[in-house]
Design a binder for these strands. Structure first.
Length: 201
DNA sequence: TTATTGATTGACT
DNA sequence: GTCAATCAATAAA
């Protein structure tokens, strides 16, 4: 399976977020290959989006990779203990991205369990942005990495996803982001059990 | 320089 | 439902 082409990531960010649902994220780690299907994602829209790390055009070492051109990873450390991974979209210097919030584990489950000892069920392995990074050993070292590389890449949908299967809600955890808080920029596969949160919150 | 706050998770009442 | 963990980035002073 070939990685998604660069053009895929240059579309408008909401379209990319929707199109990523059903696609598969791969991680090569010490000779083993881990994989998870994207089932939940959120769009972050750059300068005018007060929930984005790049709000007001803010440019700092942490968010620099958000300004790369589409098809790279933006990985950041938060709450003093978790990493979150974004898929950067748009041309260079436009800071938009898609946060991966939930994956369905497909391959390398045993390896994932060793890094997610607190996950009681396979359901809990990757049903949150911090959880999926832990399961796939994604950390600061992969910040800015291309998404068509050897250690990290995304392949097209291996399942059919109809538009009506995509549910929409406000983003999670951005209550203090002013007018951007209720924006309908969270997308997930309706009824998929690997989605972390329900429609509300 | 100090203070506040997270694009979260997991344990606990 | 509440709340602690744990620290870097950002805001305030």
């Amino acid at each position: 399976m070939k990685p998604l082409p660069r053009d895929f990531y240059l579309n408008d960010t909401v379209s990319v977020a929707r199109a990523l649902l059903g696609c598969v994220l791969w991680r090569r780690l010490d000779g083993e290959l881990l994989a998870g299907r994207i089932v939940e994602a959120e769009a972050y829209l750059g300068a005018n989006d007060m929930a984005s790390h790049a709000r007001r055009g803010l440019r700092s070492p942490r968010v620099e990779s958000m300004y790369l051109d589409g098809g790279h990873a933006y990985v950041y450390f938060t709450y003093g203990m978790h990493y979150c991974m974004n898929v950067v979209t748009q041309e260079a210097d436009i800071a938009e991205a898609v946060l991966l919030r939930g994956l369905e584990p497909l391959q390398g489950l045993e390896s994932m369990r060793t890094r997610r000892p607190k996950a009681k069920r396979d359901l809990d392995l990757m049903n949150g942005p911090g959880k999926l990074c832990a399961a796939m050993a994604i950390d600061k070292a992969l910040d800015g990495a291309p998404l068509n590389g050897k250690t990290l890449f995304i392949t097209p949908r291996d399942i059919e996803v109809r538009e009506e299967e995509i549910a929409v809600s406000a983003r999670i955890g951005v209550e203090n982001s002013g007018e951007a808080a209720p924006w309908p920029l969270r997308f997930y596969l309706r009824g998929n059990k690997f989605v972390g949160h329900g429609p509300m919150r």
